[in-house]
């Protein structure tokens, strides 16, 4: 009787250690992910501060901030995640990585009007990990989920550009978002766990529609109307733009 008691104890001590370590690690990953989320959001806000006159300056600052997120916060994730953790703990870090992808894509889009590839993002992560370890690589799913979120930011950007009279820019954003949406309609159904993606597709369509409507409004009415009112204090309520941002 005694021997089986202690055998079971030994067995469970083993599992207890395993669970403690796993939970601690998960906790650290969640924290690191939260830091990544918070600071990536700041980068996105910074990009939004760009306007016609200060673009270069604001974007440079945003890019510098993004590099800081990579070095200080993504590096923490990289340190924690090894081997099977990458998929096992994905739920603990996916939101941070999605936000990070979104911020990186947003910076790139505002800079060049192109989409930053997954390989390019992953290349920036390689130097963060120890040469002997397999480097952390963002997976396709988190990248695509981040890209889906990007359209929300692009919607805000497009509305903002229209308010400042940069209609052509807004129309390019519109085209870009339409391309993303079209491409993702093919990907969404074959993604691993597509419930989350399905929801994002709906939101994305809403964002695309909002940009399209705003472009439409300004195209149809704005062109005549803006110069009549002057450029200093423009009342855009006639374009029903005020509730587009929500």
């Amino acid at each position: 009787m005694m021997s089986t008691t202690s055998a079971m104890k030994v067995e469970f001590e083993h599992h207890s250690n395993y669970l403690n370590e796993l939970n601690d690690k998960r906790e650290r990953v969640v924290k690191a992910s939260r830091d990544v989320t918070m600071n990536s959001k700041k980068v996105i806000f910074q990009v939004h501060r760009a306007s016609k006159n200060n673009r270069e300056e604001v974007l440079s600052k945003a890019e510098k901030d993004l590099a800081t997120v990579t070095d200080h916060f993504m590096s923490k994730l990289v340190k924690e995640l090894h081997g099977t953790d990458f998929w096992k703990l994905r739920r603990a870090y996916t939101f941070g990585v999605q936000e990070y992808v979104e911020a990186a894509l947003f910076c790139r889009f505002c800079r060049t009007g192109t989409v930053l590839g997954l390989n390019e993002i992953n290349a920036t992560l390689v130097p963060l990990s120890h040469p002997s370890d397999e480097p952390l690589q963002i997976n396709v799913l988190d990248y695509v989920l981040g890209l889906a979120d990007l359209t929300g930011e692009l919607m805000r950007l497009a509305i903002g550009r229209i308010s400042e009279g940069e209609v052509e820019y807004a129309e390019k954003i519109c085209r870009f978002v339409q391309n993303i949406y079209r491409e993702l309609t093919l990907l969404a159904p074959i993604m691993d766990d597509n419930a989350e993606m399905k929801k994002k597709m709906e939101t994305m369509l809403q964002s695309a529609t909002k940009i399209e409507n705003a472009c439409f409004s300004v195209h149809v009415r704005g062109l005549e109307y803006i110069p009549l009112l002057g450029t200093d204090d423009i009342d855009y309520s006639f374009m029903s733009l005020q509730d587009l941002d929500s």
Binding site: E56, F109, R111, T114, V115, E166, G222, T231
Partner: peptide
């Protein structure tokens, strides 16, 4: 009237290349 709203992009909007759409296609 159209000059005020259109063509604003010349002074600083991102440089959208035509290849953007096709590079996106390749990525996807």
């Amino acid at each position: 009237s159209s000059a005020g709203a259109g063509g604003v992009n010349d002074d600083g909007g991102p440089d959208f290349s035509l290849s953007a759409a096709s590079s996106m296609e390749r990525l996807f």
